[in-house]
Write a protein that binds this DNA or RNA. Sequence first.
DNA 1: TATGAATGAGCCTTCATTCAT
DNA 2: CATGAATGAAGGCTCATTCAT
Lengths: 185, 185, 185, 185
Amino acid sequence: MSSPRRANRGPAAAAENRVALLAAAKATFVEHGLDAPLNQIARAAGVGQGSLYRHFPTREAIILAVFDENLGQLEAMVAKVDSTLDELLAEMFDQIVDVAVLFELFRFADSSDPRLAEIIGRLYALLDEKLGDDSSRGSIRRGVTAEDIFLSVGMLAGLLNKTPEQERPSVAKKCRALLLRALCD
Amino acid sequence: MSSPRRANRGPAAAAENRVALLAAAKATFVEHGLDAPLNQIARAAGVGQGSLYRHFPTREAIILAVFDENLGQLEAMVAKVDSTLDELLAEMFDQIVDVAVLFELFRFADSSDPRLAEIIGRLYALLDEKLGDDSSRGSIRRGVTAEDIFLSVGMLAGLLNKTPEQERPSVAKKCRALLLRALCD
Amino acid sequence: MSSPRRANRGPAAAAENRVALLAAAKATFVEHGLDAPLNQIARAAGVGQGSLYRHFPTREAIILAVFDENLGQLEAMVAKVDSTLDELLAEMFDQIVDVAVLFELFRFADSSDPRLAEIIGRLYALLDEKLGDDSSRGSIRRGVTAEDIFLSVGMLAGLLNKTPEQERPSVAKKCRALLLRALCD
Amino acid sequence: MSSPRRANRGPAAAAENRVALLAAAKATFVEHGLDAPLNQIARAAGVGQGSLYRHFPTREAIILAVFDENLGQLEAMVAKVDSTLDELLAEMFDQIVDVAVLFELFRFADSSDPRLAEIIGRLYALLDEKLGDDSSRGSIRRGVTAEDIFLSVGMLAGLLNKTPEQERPSVAKKCRALLLRALCD
DNA sequence: TATGAATGAGCCTTCATTCAT
DNA sequence: CATGAATGAAGGCTCATTCAT
């Protein structure tokens, strides 16, 4: 019997699969929310259910991984440009319109989860580095902490997640103005 | 027989049931989010599944009812005291810590239920009334619109919904400071 | 408290209610089939659920009553006109397009049910009366029994019940031609 | 533990399961009609509820599959013997006593499922092939169309579906006589 | 190790039936 | 006797998770 089942590409495919899963997960989460059926992710990735579970044993695990990956991109960006916090914030505010859903992560991950703590730690480090240096602080006023920025971004994300797709850009713009006023002189 | 069917308390229980359902719904939503199983609400209210559906034919209907009830309390408060917007905002920020989940209601914004529009209208009216009058604007700066306040509250609620129970007061306090800075002179 | 509940018109309304229920039942069955929710019938009749149950304790009971009533109309028609069987058949074939659903009755009523037996008996009597008399037999061939006619009508009804609304007239016409060929010389 | 979850027999069981489901579905439909609970079919097949839905995502799908299978048997029979339409009809009339319920399938006639159209097409082709050739038409009179036969079979099925099990053979016999008279010279 | 079918728990919803008023 | 709210059993369907191959 010739099974129509996708060929088992063996262990070598593991890395490929992981990448495909992360991409599929991000797309699926953005489109259907963090409660999207997991099999939808597996299907979109062209990967078996079981493989998804092997790579990410829980829903939380894959969400964390996607978030982590996105944060990685942000870090890379920061590392490359000699940017001020203004520019970094602008970039974050821009990107968040599309991936706000990932911030729902906090509903899932227990805040004591070491992976989450690690991710938050990296974000804080990123921000503290800029805040601590007058030349890179941009127009952010003294006294603003990394946590303040973190909370601001979180609030924006929180609202965007309740906002219908097409209204997001306009809502984001108005909120950004409010938040900058809160954070800048 | 194993299952002693709950006594049929008759039509007289209708009003009681409605109240019990609303209370149970609020508690359940606060604890488990707006996607909480409806049967859990019915059980918590000590009411049959069917009665829940009779009183609130859709999930949206019961969410709206709970929200409406809370909004009513807010309006009552405003009506009583000759309050400034500062006080109104303080009240809202206080209350929202406990019922932030209700703001998830706006996920249903594309709903055809006219009551949602009505509720939003009432909220705006509440705010516009205060904003339009210099003597009641408090320390809110000129140029702030009802929408700005609405968005601020929405952002706060959005973040609180992702925040674990015990951290909410502290998060709320910090966010409140940020938002007031955004809204006041 | 003024109860918005329909006034209890007392025992006097019993007869009225029964009539309203039968009419509503017929309309509801025709439109939604014999499995239509009973509360739909009560509502259409403007009558409480309980009253429906008082008049017709089972679904079968109300179906039988509707069927019976329709048969009564047929009998009345036969009694009035000095009709041949041809005309009677034509009438039945005509009417059945609209009320074929009532023949689903046989799926519900146990054939040993005395009420059903009584109804069938009346139908047979109606037919036998015409068949037995050469002058009223019309073009129906000798040898055809009341049962043959009964089965023919039943078959037609059976098919019509599976036929989408708008195709019924055309299907009925073709089947009628076939059945007449079976029953006539 | 109280519920010894059925062993997961693995993907290899897929084919077996499909067969078991079809058999169970046929039996269940015959006994309880096309509205029989699907979980009853799953249980009868010794298969999980989810597997039923995997194989047949809708009720219509499984009905179609059962019907298709039966039609396949009919076609096979026709293909083998060099039969006349008389014989084909006899076979159909015989078989229909047991599986009349499947003809309820046509309640789904407005379905968008192309397989239904395909099935009807095959039935018509089967009949047209015989009708078009004088040597195979048997005693069926000229002028009879495939549709006439289709309608006849449908009418018989419709009636049998309302007929209690034990009376079906006798009813079928009488109706068959009537219908043959309608279709033959 | 990858695959995807199997499994059943669990939520949603409808509706027949009962019964306090 | 009429009313219509209350009740929960029952069936539909989805999806997280397991596991034979």
